[in-house]
Design a protein around this nucleic acid. Structure first.
Lengths: 129, 129
DNA sequence: TGTTTTATTGCAAATGACTTGCATTAAGTA
DNA sequence: TACTTAATGCAAGTCATTTGCAATAAAACA
């Protein structure tokens, strides 16, 4: 049988859709609990797996080691992270979009999202070295 | 006092340098154990932290959730991961290199490495949908 | 509409990567 | 060679995520 439409799944998807940014399972649980107090973290994880499998959301592993989820359609930001102090700033350039077509042709893949993270040293950490 | 040069640290760095690709702490432990059987995983983690802090190696969080380490100078590959079956293939294009100079100018950062991952559906998973 | 089937839930316990506390060991220095 | 303390290795502790299982509730069917 196909997957079922449960209150939990609807609520989880609604939270992700409303926030429109990458959220951790824990954040999703807490937001969804406002309307569904008995919701369990396990259930959140299982629904997130389903939503990823069916292509509705994408799973992103962040540099802090925590997995976050977001709607596929969301326009993602890219980050520049300082290896010294951990400061994170957003990079708005995205050279990848212009490449996806070509990579799709090369590989036969259907590309739905991507992640880019740059690592370096910020101005104050550069001096401190 | 500064950090000390121990047999463990030398061995760990040698493993990373020789392999010249991103390795997990566990992989590093097992490779290093061949010459240093008593080496503990804890020690591996602590040395990796030091090496990252001093800028010798970089820490990369992979889409499987496992942290890997590699020599800063190593030329890294980029990956294309299927959201359906998990198949991973390497992408050899890298549009980021040509951008780093500009981002450095914009942000004042000193960029030392980066990570790029593309997500999509491979040919067989595309059909299965 | 009531009944049946089984996907989904929520709890508790398990896993696995990584971290921390602490007594012991061994670099680096005097 | 003796001393200081950074680094080691073991054991135990975190914390995100997963798994087992009995109870629940969607969806299909009578």
């Amino acid at each position: 049988m196909a997957t079922r439409q449960t209150r939990q799944k609807k609520q989880i998807l609604q939270v992700i859709t409303q926030k429109d940014k990458a959220l951790s399972a824990d954040q999703i649980l807490n937001l969804a609990k406002k309307d569904l107090p008995t919701l369990a973290l396990t259930t959140v994880y299982r629904n997130l797996d389903q939503l990823v499998a069916q292509g509705t959301i994408s799973r992103l592993i962040y540099p802090d080691g925590i997995t976050r989820y977001q709607i596929i359609s969301a326009n993602h930001g890219h980050e520049l992270i300082c290896l010294g102090c951990g400061e994170t700033i957003d990079v708005n350039q995205c050279p990848i979009s212009s490449l996806t077509r070509q990579i799709e042709d090369d590989t036969g893949f259907d590309i739905v999202s991507h992640q880019m993270t740059l690592y370096g040293y910020c101005q104050s950490c550069k001096r401190r070295n």
